[in-house]
């Protein structure tokens, strides 16, 4: 849809977004201030593409042309030919707000700037730019080159035209975009909160164990993963910080109140799979759940 797309931030999300766009035949300027991060991102994309080739999802030629379309940049003005910008830098309001102001200075007048955020208000991110009507939220889900959903967030000043173009662009990437108002947690992070919050309360009251609750959620309700194994996978600290952010943004609404169990686990450094210990314990080498843990 666009000939050139700029992606700012070459972390996990930025790299995934760049790959999704390059796969759909646009040239991508992948920018990061850190050259090492940028090189690592390109390596990760190459490795993901290689896996895709091995699985027969694309040919070697296709994978090579995707890589060719991704142009690593460490100099922000190099993004100036971009027809559309997506930033995926750290979730820090001040950093994003400053970045957008700088990006607006280097891109063509009126270029849409999308912010990939899961928790920050788009309206606040757009507060410092000259054309807030051109700023929109685009919340991709990890891994961004695979997950179909994109939440397109309408800030208070986002224009209808910007929303329309962003929806069309997301669809051109083979995604399913949904429009959502600029409210805390948007749709997914908000509606999913009780999955963790109620499960923690049920466990906290000793109604059932972590392992039982997970089994029940899988076998009775048909969830792919139970809340505790999912929190272990996401990172208990990451999950807590989303909950805490929702609780704060909704001015202490009790439905989002973080549970003491989760806080204590973060304080104890039990963060889930990444520390081999969370609601379950994990075999350090096999990376599998230790039998009987979670009970």
């Amino acid at each position: 849809m666009f000939k050139y797309v700029g992606v700012i931030g070459a972390g996990t999300m930025g790299a995934g977004i760049a790959m999704a766009i390059a796969t759909c035949k646009s040239d991508v300027y992948l920018y990061d201030v850190n050259d090492t991060v940028l090189r690592r991102a390109v390596e990760r994309i190459k490795s993901d593409l290689k896996k895709g080739v091995q699985k027969g999802k694309l040919t070697t030629e296709e994978s090579l042309s995707i890589i060719e379309r991704i142009r690593p940049k460490t100099h922000l003005p190099d993004l100036s030919p971009s027809d559309f910008i997506i930033e995926a830098v750290v979730e820090d309001l001040r950093v994003k707000r400053d970045l957008l102001r700088r990006v607006e200075e280097v891109v063509k007048h009126g270029t849409i700037i999308a912010s990939n955020t899961s928790s920050l208000p788009i309206t606040s991110i757009a507060a410092g730019v000259k054309l807030p009507s051109k700023v929109v939220g685009m919340h991709f889900f990890n891994p961004a080159h695979i997950m179909k959903l994109v939440e397109v967030i309408r800030g208070d000043r986002t224009s209808e035209e910007t929303i329309h173009s962003t929806m069309a662009f997301a669809s051109s990437l083979g995604k399913t975009p949904v429009i959502v108002k600029d409210t805390p947690g948007f749709i997914v992070n908000r509606v999913a909160r009780p999955f963790y919050g109620e499960a923690l309360r049920i466990a906290g009251e000793n109604i059932a164990t972590y392992a039982q609750i997970d089994r029940i959620c899988r076998s009775v309700a048909g969830f792919a993963m139970g809340p505790f194994e999912l929190m272990d996978l996401i990172g208990i600290d990451v999950n807590l910080s989303v909950t805490q952010s929702m609780y704060d943004q909704f001015s202490g609404e009790p439905r989002y109140r973080p549970h003491p169990i989760q806080k204590r686990m973060v304080e104890a450094g039990k963060l889930g799979r990444k520390t081999n210990e969370g609601f379950y314990t994990y075999d350090e080498f096999k990376k599998t759940k230790v039998e009987g843990s979670g009970n």
Partner: peptide
Amino acid sequence: NEAAFALQDDIALPEDIDTAMKLGVS
């Protein structure tokens, strides 16, 4: 209940709330 609050707050269309939860968190 949370989805109903979200719908009541008019944050998105009902079918988009359902789509988001199915595609975003399976």
